[in-house]
Computed example of a mutant assay.
Amino acid sequence: MPRFSRRGKTKLLFATTIASPDYIPTRAELASATKLTKAIAAVDGFALENSPIDTPDLESTFTSKIAGEDQAADSTITFYEDDTDDALETALAKGTSGFVIIQRKGDVPGSKSMDVYPATVASKSSTITVDNESAKWAAKFVITDTPALDVAVPAAGAGLAAKTTSDS
């Protein structure tokens, strides 16, 4: 089985609108989304978690479980701060709602490796440190509805390229 590194392959975008009620973007919606990948220092969360329910009974000392409610993990993207361009900070201002799109295996049309998280930026903060490292800021997201997971990346269209913010 071939393996790969997420670095250099996985793509993250932020779309302000997706028309489909199933949160599956069209190629045109992907093209108009803001590319986040090049500015990302770290990604945390963006996963579904289940809270299992204990189901003990008197017949056994073993406590079995059943699946309980699903909820999204706390989700944050940490970005490298740009000292001349604030386009990402503007696009991801506190209170902004949209969709975090993760193409886990890259922009590979037909690959069922795209996750779409309806989300709102809950907070945005700079990371201030005196350590010898690049300046960063973080956007914390609240996931507002059940994400669309493992959906197919739409077919590529001629001449469509995602809007660049600090390049790809």
Rank of each mutant, 00 (worst) to 15 (best):
M1W: 14
R3G: 13
R6C: 06
G8Q: 00
K9F: 12
K9P: 01
F14I: 09
F14W: 08
I18M: 05
D22F: 14
D22G: 08
I24T: 07
I24L: 09
P25Q: 00
T26N: 02
T26S: 09
A28G: 09
E29D: 06
E29F: 07
S32W: 01
S32D: 08
A33Y: 02
A33P: 15
A33I: 04
A33G: 09
K35A: 12
K35V: 14
L36G: 07
L36E: 04
L36R: 01
T37F: 06
K38Y: 08
A41K: 08
A42Q: 13
A42N: 13
A42H: 10
D44H: 05
D44E: 11
D44R: 10
A47D: 11
L48R: 15
L48W: 12
L48A: 07
E49N: 11
S51D: 15
S51W: 07
P52D: 03
I53T: 10
P56F: 03
D57N: 10
D57G: 07
L58H: 03
E59K: 06
S60A: 03
K65C: 02
I66R: 14
D70F: 15
D70V: 15
Q71G: 15
A72G: 09
S75C: 14
S75T: 11
S75A: 14
S75K: 07
S75V: 14
T76A: 09
Y80E: 07
Y80S: 08
Y80A: 07
Y80N: 11
Y80C: 03
E81L: 03
E81Y: 03
D83R: 15
T84A: 04
D85A: 04
D85W: 06
D86R: 01
D86H: 01
A87N: 05
L88C: 05
T90A: 11
A91Y: 01
L92C: 09
K94L: 09
K94R: 12
G95S: 08
T96L: 05
S97P: 03
G98I: 00
G98S: 03
F99M: 07
V100T: 04
I101D: 03
I101A: 05
I101Y: 06
Q103P: 00
R104I: 15
D107K: 05
D107L: 04
V108A: 10
V108R: 14
V108F: 13
G110W: 04
G110T: 01
S111P: 06
S111R: 08
S113T: 11
S113W: 02
M114L: 07
D115S: 14
D115F: 14
V116T: 03
V116Q: 00
Y117I: 15
P118S: 00
P118A: 00
A119F: 09
A122Q: 11
S123E: 13
K124G: 13
S125V: 04
S125C: 03
I128H: 11
T129L: 03
V130S: 06
N132K: 06
E133L: 05
A139Y: 09
A139M: 14
F141T: 01
V142I: 12
V142E: 14
I143G: 04
T144D: 02
A148K: 00
L149I: 15
V151S: 06
V151F: 04
V153R: 06
A155M: 01
A155I: 00
A156S: 10
A156H: 02
G157R: 00
G157F: 02
A158S: 14
G159E: 03
L160V: 14
T165K: 11
T165M: 10
S166D: 12
S166L: 15
D167E: 13
S168V: 12
S168F: 15
